[in-house]
Every structure is written in structure tokens, then in C-alpha cells.
């Protein structure tokens, strides 16, 4: 399937969705002007991927900042992954955060409480 590669900017994250190479990653900063349209391709890609996923799916979040509007869209992405997990697929979420950033660590913990998916916290 199609690979998505979006370069990061000062207000939008870098996104790589590459099923062939098992890379799924959202990293950097997220405060896009229009969150819904920015994340729409990601959700569409995941919908398509979910129909025919790899044996194991590892989705990496490595964000340094996201605004409240983005937090809602990140939850939509996580819920999509939860859906796959509920269907019996092997899905893992890796939540990377700077080790001195308690708020980002806590944000990961909160998501882990909301969605029922294997969730790994990875300080760096």
C-alpha cells in the first residue's frame, strides 16, 4: 500500500507510515492550523492498513509538543489501533518522551488508560 511521508515543520509533526518497512511514526510538534484535515490522511491510511495488517504493528509516537486540539486527533488514531487490537491483531504503541518531560510522560499514561492496547513508555 501507499507510503505516507510528511516532513515536519515548526507546527506540524513528521509522519512516516510505511507498511512495507514496518515504520509507523509521528514525531515532533503538533499544532496544525487545521487539525482535522492535517490528520485525515493518517486516519485514512490506518483504515486501509487495518484491512490487511502486518503480523505485528508497532506505532511510534515521539512528540515533543502537541496542543489540545491535536490531543483529540491523537486519540482518534489510538482508537483506530485499539480497534485492530480488539480484533485480535498484534498491536503495540510506543510512546517516546524526553526523560525530563513529565507532562509528556503523563500524557502517554493517560492515553494508555483510555485505550485498551499494549502501550510501552519509552523515555529518551
Amino acid at each position: 500500500m501507499e507510503t505516507i511521508k510528511i516532513q515536519g515543520t515548526e507546527d506540524t509533526p513528521k509522519i512516516i507510515l510505511d507498511a512495507g518497512n514496518d515504520i509507523m511514526e509521528i514525531s515532533g510538534r503538533s499544532l496544525p492550523e487545521d487539525v482535522s484535515s492535517f490528520y485525515e490522511p493518517v486516519l485514512n491510511w490506518l483504515n486501509e492498513y487495518a484491512e490487511n495488517p502486518k503480523k505485528k504493528t508497532v506505532f511510534n509516537f515521539k512528540l515533543t509538543y502537541f496542543n489540545t486540539a491535536s490531543s483529540k486527533l491523537l486519540l482518534d488514531i489510538l482508537m483506530k489501533l485499539e480497534e485492530m487490537h480488539e480484533k485480535g491483531q498484534d498491536v503495540v504503541i510506543r510512546w517516546h518522551f524526553p526523560e525530563d518531560d513529565e507532562d509528556m510522560a503523563e500524557a502517554g499514561e493517560e492515553y494508555a488508560e483510555i485505550v485498551d492496547v499494549p502501550f510501552e513508555q519509552v523515555p529518551y
Partner: peptide
């Protein structure tokens, strides 16, 4: 609010 709230037309999540 993140779970149940909806984004407004202008993209506000009611979380600010």
C-alpha cells in the same frame, strides 16, 4: 472531554 467532546467547526476541542 477528549473522548466525548467534538471538535468545533473552527477546530476547538473545549480543552484549552
Amino acid at each position: 472531554q477528549m473522548k466525548e467532546g467534538r471538535l468545533s467547526e473552527k477546530g476547538g476541542a473545549g480543552l484549552g
